[in-house]
Computed example of a mutant assay.
Amino acid sequence: MDCIVVQVYPDGLCPPIAQLMLSTLEILLPVFALIFAGFACRRRNLLGPTAASELNRFVVWLALPALLFDTMAHSTWRQLDQPGFVMTFSVACAAVFLGVVVVRLVQGRHLADASVDAIAASYPNTGYIGFPLGMIVFGNASLTPTTIATIIVACVLFAFAIVLIEVGLQAERAPHKLGLKVLRSLAKNPLIVSPIAGALVASAHWTLPHSAETFLKLLSGAASPCALVSLGLFLAEKRPAGNGRRTSLVFTAIKLVAQPAFTWWMAARVFALPADAVDMAVLLAALPTGTGPYMLAEFYRREAHVTSQTILYSTLASLVTLSLLLVVMQRHGI
């Protein structure tokens, strides 16, 4: 591509930074609006103190499993046949995740809490923000890489975090008994079972009935909005001041700066991907933290304050960082 374009500009000029920021804001505005809606409803006591938890349970047990199942059931091996891109994005996410886990464990955090912290620092919002932003910047060419990134993030990284959380929560020390307990817990977890079931459907080339497709679309469509409203409800609860803000800011910097920088190095230097693939990988890695980490923290009853703040701060800061990234890409002739 000669430049980042949303529409045709005179004299072949690319849109100025103000236009790029406006385009990014238009995508992020619904995210802010849904978080604020939950925040306002809680502060005005329109929804009670248990609303965040109950709404999150709806997402974890119904809406998100439907989304994960639907995503995997409609994925094809041909879509995923981009080994360089898959390895780049997977290794970058895994490196950030494992790096944060190790640091938090050294700092004395419980494995379950360290895993929640790690996914908060490495979980890009590819589903809600990645698809529309990718379409603006790269057009239809972004659909397949964004789908791959979404599967890696929402299914693989998410599942890995759940496994570590389950391992951390089990008190059994005998390795074989610990393994059995973890497997039993995972077999009951809808966030693990649903993508596996979807992958089996895709592998068997089964076509779901129209009524089942409609059911999944309706239910999965509620996952992101309800998770964002639940996040707003949680943020509205008054808590004593602590050092969580500093940690959240560090995670935000890791998510918006360190992860895309490492992804660029992997894509351009290690796997030597084509320029367009490098740009798409970096843009997807630079997205703010999605709501998945918050849902995990709430579901497993871990402290969700740092996670929720990371989602909010990274989303706010991404308006600037994504716009600057697009300007850098533009100047380097994408």
Rank of each mutant, 00 (worst) to 15 (best):
D113P: 00
S90M: 15
D70P: 00
L64W: 07
F85A: 06
I35V: 14
C41A: 15
M87C: 04
A51K: 05
T50V: 09
L98Q: 02
A51N: 07
G48F: 09
S115Q: 02
T76E: 13
S115I: 09
W77C: 05
L111S: 02
L62S: 10
D81Y: 02
V59D: 01
R78L: 05
R42Y: 09
S53T: 11
V60C: 06
T76Q: 12
A37W: 13
A120C: 12
R42W: 06
C41Y: 10
F97N: 11
A94Q: 13
A121W: 07
R104K: 11
R57D: 13
M72A: 14
V116S: 12
Q107I: 01
V96Q: 03
D117C: 08
G84K: 10
A51R: 06
L105C: 11
F58W: 05
L68A: 11
V100A: 11
R109W: 11
P49D: 11
V86Y: 15
F89R: 03
Q82R: 15
S90A: 15
V103P: 08
H74P: 00
L105G: 08
S122T: 07
T88I: 01
P49M: 01
L34T: 04
L80Q: 00
L67C: 03
V106D: 02
P49T: 11
F36N: 00
R43F: 08
L34P: 02
F89S: 07
V103Q: 10
G38H: 09
A94T: 14
G99D: 12
D70I: 02
C93K: 03
T76F: 10
T88A: 03
A63C: 12
F58P: 00
P49E: 13
H74V: 02
S115Y: 12
G108F: 09
C93W: 00
V91P: 04
A114L: 06
T76C: 04
T88S: 08
A92S: 15
D81C: 06
L55R: 01
A73S: 15
A118L: 05
T88P: 04
E54W: 05
G108C: 12
R78C: 03
L34W: 05
T76L: 06
V106W: 15
M87S: 14
A121R: 01
G48W: 04
A92L: 07
M87K: 05
G108S: 11
T71W: 05
Q82I: 07
C93Y: 00
V116E: 00
V106R: 14
A114N: 10
A51Q: 07
A92R: 06
Q79R: 07
T71V: 11
A120E: 11
R104L: 00
G99A: 11
D117T: 05
L62F: 14
S53V: 02
P49Y: 04
F58I: 13
S90C: 10
L64M: 15
R104A: 14
V102F: 11
D70A: 14
V116L: 11
C41M: 13
F36T: 14
A94C: 15
A120D: 12
